[in-house]
Design a protein around this nucleic acid. Structure first.
Lengths: 248, 248
DNA sequence: CGTTACGTTGACAGAATTCAAAAGTAGTGG
DNA sequence: CCACTACTTTTGAATTCTGTCAACGTAACG
């Protein structure tokens, strides 16, 4: 555990921001009480590692606030992001003792943790938790497969456009709007993180961002604030009609 | 439904070859009886489409024998395989009405199907089914993420070596041996299917197969029978020490 | 003001795709 | 049995895209 880890007092489940979307979403009050009894909070600062691939992992957790990434690496250092944990997303796996991926906080992060053993017992006794977890896992699997299409078959330009379309859409959905026409949002990823996400080098990411800007598909204010004059045009550049549903 | 679809008589669950690995693996006799009451079999010939992406899908199913692929395509025809269904693998998703991927039989295929509605009801009443399904889905998610690393960061040569290592290992595990030293197996995929799997063109697949042969990493008898003189050498070529666990 | 992290750009090399042709394989029907 | 067709696979040559290496710019911060 890192020296910089910040201890935090526990909020109540009742006013938890992810109460209706996380693994506990379907729980009744009595079930919630059981979870409440075994939960504890941990927080991490931006940049900290939550866990290393291969390390023993005796807890599972939900992201309450912040963003974390899952990455895998080859021996020579090539790394690929394989998942993005947003608020309400679940991390860890019942029935496994070691972490399969590196988990890193990319922003300040608050996690609601459960010791694995008690959680597993609860899982077998509380169908509502197992059902919700199944649903969430199926969603993640769909997202991973959408991502595979991107990694395997899209050009660098299409990859960048896809990423921007996804982030833009998620941002719009937070503001309860359907993404269309003009759109603006902050991109909380470095060029390197984008590269790891898309299976590219950071130089290629930079080049394609410049190209999209030159072609009027996007505008940039500073490095991280993106303006999309025409969302449909961006979708065209992404190469798929369906605006692949991952990362919602 | 295709004209060529072959009707089949129903085997009993008791002597079903996937009884101990499929979604029904954890079921007690009484639970099995409930599943048995709603199951029916369908079979497909090699090359037939099981379902198209977007089509209404009112059943879920387990693969009993044979192999099927899940593929996604972009408008212009680029296609990426996003999943491989082997015996005991599960297809379909409770709580969804339309198929997200194309499913194609690559060999003759026998599936054990359940109408979705009754299956969903069973799922909420029978924790053993839900638990097993969760477990299988988590395994698939791990496999998908391993695959993402391959698609995003491996070279063509590493991709081919990885695929051969995986198929070889699965084949060895069927014979109850740990893969090591000399190994031989049939590769039930065309060059094009390999390409779709790995995010390459079929020409590149062919070239790299030739290169691995030239370098003594593999030997070929005919086009589809592969001999691996030294499994560890093949793993080296695959680029990851860990012999990524997917597709087991 | 130097240091550091992040981002952009250029030149070049290398990897993979594209286009094209030819060779191997399998199945069909005369 | 052979000719014919359709399909798969291999190989070559040229092109294109992306990665690599390197230089430079910019912003934040002590």
């Amino acid at each position: 555990m890192s020296l910089h880890e910040v201890p935090t007092v526990a909020p109540k489940c009742g006013d938890c921001p992810i109460r209706h979307r996380a693994v506990c979403a379907r729980c009744e009050v009595d079930e919630l009480a059981l979870l409440d009894a075994i939960k504890y909070y941990r927080s991490f600062e931006a940049g900290q590692t939550v866990i290393w691939a291969g390390d023993r992992m005796d807890f599972v957790a939900s992201v309450v606030t912040g963003v974390a990434t899952l990455t895998q690496t080859l021996e020579d250092g090539r790394t690929q992001m394989v998942g993005l944990l947003l608020p309400s997303d679940f991390m860890g796996r019942p029935g496994r003792t070691n972490a399969p991926y590196n988990v890193t906080a990319t922003t300040d992060l608050l996690m609601c943790c459960f010791r694995k053993k008690p959680f597993e017992e609860l899982l077998s006794k509380t169908p509502h938790i197992a059902q919700r977890l199944l649903e969430m896992t199926l969603d993640e699997l769909d997202a991973a497969r959408e991502w595979m299409l991107l990694l395997g078959r899209k050009t660098a330009r299409e990859k960048i456009a896809s990423l921007l379309a996804i982030v833009g859409r998620r941002d719009a959905s937070l503001n309860l709007r359907a993404p269309s026409g003009r759109l603006a949002f902050d991109l909380a990823l470095t060029r390197e993180a984008m590269a790891d996400y898309l299976g590219l080098t950071l130089e290629t990411v930079s080049r394609q961002m410049s190209a999209l800007k030159r072609d009027g598909v996007i505008e940039l204010e500073g490095k991280r604030h993106v303006i999309v004059p025409d969302y449909d045009l961006l979708l065209d550049e992404a190469g798929d009609d369906s605006d692949g549903g991952f990362l919602v």
